[in-house]
């Protein structure tokens, strides 16, 4: 087993190394001189040269790459030109809304998807099941930013139940800040519930006809217990995987949703960095988000080892 963990760890590191290389390439293929682009049209050649040296752009590419790796190894994500602060601090400052937005969205998505998916599989082929199948395809077709706008219009503008946008200002209490997340988290959660519902349903269908489910029934166990304790527990692994991966991918939904709701999160930071060509921030955000995805993936694999006695390597 420890060999398996080691293997996965090594695999994770290889992927992370490739991720770093890809990010380096993306930022370096930018046409034109990044220093000139960052400083804008009014910059003098001398200013540009100073920034080039500061960013290490005067060095040959392989040397830049080695510097980049060494910098990352020290945990340094670079320095934002526009914000004039380390990229890591800029990301940390913006982490709270994004973290809670993703967390609430995944909770909402699971709260919809798990019961609906289980019920749908249990009543396979029935009216409920058919409607669910149709609705999941529909939900997966809705752009989250559009749903966000509709929610704003109905629940914020018309009914006035929730704030329209923002994060409540610098002095807002935790509760006020969270109330600003209700609508964006709902928009993201509803859209991402589709995939989890489909997986829950398929995974439940796989186990519902298994021998142990029949045995449980034949010994007179109540249906609810059969479904929840015997079937669902066994159907949980693929479901957990898809919930974990959805959580990681929600970050991309968050990029757009944060813009709709003017939430000062990581997504918003990335979008403004792109508009300002603040390459160190784009680079840092890409790296951190990809690293989170890879880590979640690794975490899910490790979780298998813990929850499923059949998984032994």
């Amino acid at each position: 087993m420890s060999r398996y963990v080691l293997q996965r760890l090594l695999g994770m590191l290889t992927v992370m190394f490739t991720v770093v290389t890809i990010v380096f390439i993306i930022v370096r293929v930018a046409p034109g001189d990044p220093a000139a682009v960052m400083l804008g049209p009014d910059a003098t050649p001398a200013d540009i040269e100073v920034l080039r040296v500061r960013l290490g752009l005067d060095q040959p590419l392989p040397i830049q790459y080695v510097y980049f790796l060494a910098q990352l190894a020290r945990g340094d994500l670079g320095h934002s030109i526009f914000l004039d602060m380390p990229v890591a601090s800029a990301l940390l400052d913006r982490a709270e809304p994004t973290f809670f937005l993703t967390l609430f969205a995944i909770l909402i998505a699971s709260a919809i998807a798990l019961p609906v998916g289980i019920m749908s599989a249990y009543r396979r082929g029935g009216l409920f099941d058919q409607s669910v199948t149709t609705l999941t395809v529909l939900a997966a077709s809705i752009p989250s930013f559009w749903l966000g706008l509709i929610l704003i219009q109905v629940f914020a503008v018309r009914l006035g139940w929730f704030p329209v946008a923002g994060y409540g200002g610098p002095d807002a209490s935790f509760l006020t800040r969270m109330s600003h997340l209700v609508l964006p988290a709902t928009a993201l959660g509803v859209v991402s519930s589709a995939l989890i519902t489909r997986f829950t349903r398929a995974s439940m269908l796989d186990v519902l006809n298994d021998d142990y489910v029949r045995t449980a029934r034949s010994k007179g166990m109540g249906e609810l217990r059969v479904v929840m304790k015997h079937a669902f527990k066994n159907a949980l692994i693929p479901v957990l995987t898809v919930i974990g991966l959805t959580a990681a991918l929600l970050v991309s939904g968050a990029v757009v949703t944060e813009t709709v709701f003017s939430l000062p999160g990581v997504g918003n930071l990335v979008v403004s960095a792109v508009l300002r060509r603040d390459y160190p921030v784009i680079q840092g955000a890409l790296l951190v988000i990809a690293a989170i995805y890879v880590l979640i993936n690794f975490g899910i694999d490790m979780l298998y080892l813990m929850i499923d006695p059949r998984v032994r390597y």
């Binding site: 290889t14 992927v15 992370m16 490739t18 991720v19 290389t21 890809i22 990010v23 993306i26 930022v27 293929v29 930018a30 046409p31 990681a248 991918l249 970050v251 991309s252 939904g253 990029v255 757009v256 990335v270 979008v271 792109v274 060509r277 390459y279 784009i282 955000a285 890409l286 988000i289 990809a290 995805y293 890879v294 993936n297």
Partner: peptide, 24 residues
Amino acid sequence: SRIIDAMMAFPDILLAIALVAALG
């Protein structure tokens, strides 16, 4: 395969944003 794995570690919109930013 390593490149495929690494590419799929980026959320699609985010990678697209970065590429568009890089290419103009």
